[in-house]
């Protein structure tokens, strides 16, 4: 029984990845649909992030008594990476519930719905990265080749996004309180994770709050290279560790409960 379940879960994931044409079209389709009939279209993604970064950058640098030149790029990258990390968790809750019609009508790998959501967020990330380059240009910054280290970091964050969404989607299909709970928890996490502020602003006896927060390390593995510094080994190790451990837990759940999802939704 267990062996059969493992084989089927594996087949679902492999087949899901193989159906890239399907989820990439669906991901694009979602973006187009969201901005259909708006004049600026998906450019709104870039614009709203840009306005947020500009406004918060000016106000919070004043609040924190920091140089705008130093604070604003930090904030910009932080917000972009945070959104890439947190949106899959929040939207992940609805990957299966939201595709109820299709799941009950057609047989396609369930992982397709997760990958569709992830692809949508990769597209949003690409739109938001425009802000990063604008900020670099405005402040005359150049992180150099170190910035390329953000790529492995981004891949780790992306893999984390997939497992969190798969797990959140599966649990939410069964327990309908999870989407609301996740929304609340993510809001709190946003405030206690060093996104708007930096770890160095904490007094040394409570820095542990940041150090023990896996989200902090995931963000740092992308943010630090983009701002021109190499992340410490502990950051890489934690980010990677969280991803591997998360996938292990998620796979266990997926193997056991994959076949139930169609009944739950």
């Amino acid at each position: 029984m267990t062996r059969l379940r493992i084989a089927k879960a594996r087949a679902d994931l492999i087949e899901g990845v193989r159906r890239w044409e399907l989820w990439s079209v669906l991901g694009w389709h979602d973006i187009r649909q969201r901005y259909r009939r708006s004049k600026l279209g998906p450019f709104w993604i870039t614009l709203s992030m840009g306005v947020m970064v500009g406004a918060m950058g000016v106000v919070y640098s004043e609040l924190f008594n920091m140089n705008v030149r130093e604070y604003l790029p930090f904030l910009a990258v932080g917000l972009i990476v945070w959104s890439f990390l947190s949106v899959p968790i929040v939207e992940g809750c609805n990957v299966f519930i939201g595709s109820e019609g299709v799941i009950r009508q057609l047989r396609a790998p369930l992982s397709v719905h997760v990958l569709r959501m992830m692809w949508r967020n990769v597209i949003i990330l690409a739109h938001n990265m425009v802000i990063y380059f604008v900020v670099l240009a405005v402040f005359g910054l150049w992180p150099g080749a170190t910035a390329l280290l953000a790529i492995p970091g981004a891949i780790i964050v992306c893999l984390t996004g997939v497992w969190t969404a798969l797990l959140a989607g599966l649990l939410s299909a069964r327990f309908r309180d999870i989407p609301y709970m996740t929304g609340t928890v993510m809001q709190i996490l946003f405030l206690v994770t060093p996104v708007l502020w930096s770890e160095t602003q904490l007094s040394s006896n409570i820095r542990l709050i940041a150090q023990l927060n896996p989200f902090y390390h995931l963000i740092e593995s992308v943010r630090m290279p983009l701002l021109g510094s190499v992340p410490p080994l502990a950051t890489w190790a934690t980010a990677l560790g969280v991803t591997v451990a998360g996938w292990a837990v998620t796979l266990a759940f997926f193997v056991r409960y994959r076949e139930r999802i169609a009944y739950w939704i």
Partner: peptide, 15 residues
């Protein structure tokens, strides 16, 4: 297999 159940299910009304 080609399933054809409720016709509206799995279609996107806005597309």
């Amino acid at each position: 297999v080609a399933p054809l159940f409720e016709v509206a299910l799995g279609m996107d009304p806005e597309s």
